[in-house]
Nucleic acid binder design. Structure first.
Lengths: 190, 190
DNA sequence: CTCCAATTCCTAGCACCGCTAGCATTTCAA
DNA sequence: TTGAAATGCTAGCGGTGCTAGGAATTGGAG
């Protein structure tokens, strides 16, 4: 009968993560306090700490959900394209669209430092899934398999820079299309 | 005799900004609390609020100092180079080096949202100075003067992405040289 | 020199934060 | 039925950014 208890615990853990994500998406992460989160899941604050080490761990869980979601969208964009150039463009657009439509999720994934082993072999599969989509889209433009990793990282960084600078008001919104086109032209090669 | 008072006020304001920057550079921004900052300048907390609207305004002032400092370093790197390709590479290296050597300053400039009118004509001159250095380095590679702005923004975004992802542990440190070389090759054109 | 208004600056405190100790209550196997 | 284990609460700790209100200092006017 241990499994029943474990099942309801696992369910409540999911509930906490979902509530945190929803609250963040509705009002931003600065509105996600342990008190409000506890109120939302209709438990007291200490219950949160019986599931997670702290608020940071909850945000990390949301971030992992975010990577899984992003991987799905990148994959859909990539596999629907007809050629290599179209795939790279589709993935780039899907990436920036994701950051624009789900800013709270993107924040959890990239702007808050979350104790996740990026690049490590035992990083959560969702992280690798998202990265691998970028790598797959970039592969036709890598000179060697050995270069692929670095090229994917560079392309990823460029997309990340574009989205974050724009969302923070450091870049004007209306130049986005042009910048994206420029970036793609540099990676596709004329 | 109004000017004397104003002079000492201005001096104290500088002192506050310097203290904030030094404390952030020494222990990170999470250590910069209004209490510790007040203690450091040997005044009480409310004095800070007679100079600045809040902690955010102090960080904004530090950020502006940071842009001025970055502009200097980018300019030095660019003007010492012998050709266009060398200038672009030198500026890129200076940029990432700045972010690596003065992480607290870079955080104030880019990671904390600071109420600054980026891209606006009446943005602080230091902001334009830094951006203009990037634009100058990129100019030889723009197809038209009209394209220059967007190209500079795109290059800037790529550098920003590389530095931030690396500093947050999202990218491995030891691939930095390779990624930078790849980025430069894409912008210089083989 | 005296007096009074304006400025300066501190003490004390507010509401909130993440987090935890300690104790009822409930659950469930013996 | 009973007693131990698990559960989940109240209350509180030390910290945060920020501010109200009053004491002390300053400096020009009479």
């Amino acid at each position: 009968m241990q499994t029943r208890r474990e099942r309801v615990r696992a369910e409540r853990e999911k509930l906490i993560v979902s509530a945190a994500r929803e609250l963040a998406e509705a009002e931003g992460w600065e509105a996600v306090t342990t008190r409000r989160l506890a109120e939302r899941v209709e438990y007291s604050q200490p219950v949160l700490y019986s599931h997670f080490k702290g608020k940071g761990a909850i945000m990390t869980a949301v971030a992992v959900e975010g990577f899984a979601s992003m991987a799905e969208e990148l994959r859909a964009a990539r596999t629907e394209a007809v050629d290599a150039a179209g795939a790279l463009e589709a993935v780039a657009r899907a990436y920036t669209a994701f950051a624009g439509w789900r800013p709270a999720l993107y924040d959890a994934m990239f702007h808050h430092q979350v104790d996740l082993p990026f690049g490590d072999p035992d990083a959560p599969p969702a992280l690798w899934a998202a990265f691998n989509e970028l790598a797959a889209a970039v592969r036709p433009y890598a000179e060697s398999e050995d270069e692929l990793g670095a090229l994917a990282e560079t392309f990823w960084a460029a997309l990340h820079g574009l989205t974050t600078l724009m969302r923070q008001g450091r870049l004007p919104n209306d130049g986005h299309e042009r910048r994206l086109a420029l970036l793609l032209s540099r990676f596709i090669g004329v």
